[in-house]
Nucleic acid binder design. Structure first.
Lengths: 132, 132
DNA sequence: TCATTGATCAACCTTCTGGTTGTTTAAGAC
DNA sequence: GTCTTAAACAACCAGAAGGTTGATCAATGA
């Protein structure tokens, strides 16, 4: 029972980890981030993507493989060309992961501020009562 | 002139790249992501953070160094303890980077959908006119 | 058929990363 | 003082990442 996605079992957790590992690792390189930036303006071939860089096309091809393995991009076929497309859904999964912790923490900061302010207010009234 | 932050010059670009490199690389590890998750519930010491893991405290200490170098966490001092705190601002910088490309691309998808739909509608009326 | 073009595969090298063990520093506690 | 505890530092090792060069595959066009 409960072999589905919501289960917090090991299998699913590992798959999630692998996804996040490969996606964040893929973004941890300036060349790959510039490729992402270029693809946000539309699909492009390996040659087109390699043009701005001072490295070989083979190296760029490897970078694209890293992005593809992370499912951040997909490759189609158009005759002998292989256009690369951005996959925004994967990017959204990353922001979702980050935000779940960022927002929790920011909410706590806001709560802490509220507590400090109400304490300060309480001390203020108390000070008036108990001073000298 | 124009030696400020907005300039798209080399210096600033490099600093940006370094920041994103170290931050995304820091998140590309399941141990470090679990540390982030733990810290979203409040500060913790190295010993507390190391407890759930089957690796040595030295290894966890190294992971925290990676997170600190990426400015995703900060360390304070409390007697002989060194509590680690999450830095939500850095997380926000990452979502900002991702979203600038994700949203552009998603907007293009929506525009493409609109074009396809209007084309389909145009073909529909044309088909009535030109059929046979 | 054969040459060209776009892109991948394969082997190799160097550097970085994640882990270990062992030692050292720093702050309290006795 | 000495003992204990929290944590960092240092040296080392195996494996992965990013880059290169050279060879190969696949699709097109003459």
């Amino acid at each position: 029972m409960a072999t589905d996605g919501e289960e917090v079992g090991n299998q699913v957790q590992v798959r999630d980890d692998d996804m996040l590992d490969s996606a964040f690792l893929a973004l941890a390189d300036p060349v790959r981030r510039r490729i992402i930036a270029r693809l946000s303006r539309g699909p492009a071939t390996v040659n087109e993507l390699a043009e701005p860089f001072a490295i070989t096309k083979q190296a760029v091809s490897k970078h694209i493989q890293v992005l593809e393995q992370a499912q951040l991009v997909t490759r189609t076929r158009d005759a002998q060309r292989r256009p690369v497309h951005l996959n925004p859904a994967r990017l959204e999964a990353l922001t979702a992961w980050i935000d779940q912790y960022r927002l929790v923490r920011e909410e706590q900061f806001r709560s802490l501020d509220a507590v400090l302010q109400s304490n300060a207010a309480a001390r203020g009234t108390q000070a008036k009562d108990s001073s000298s």
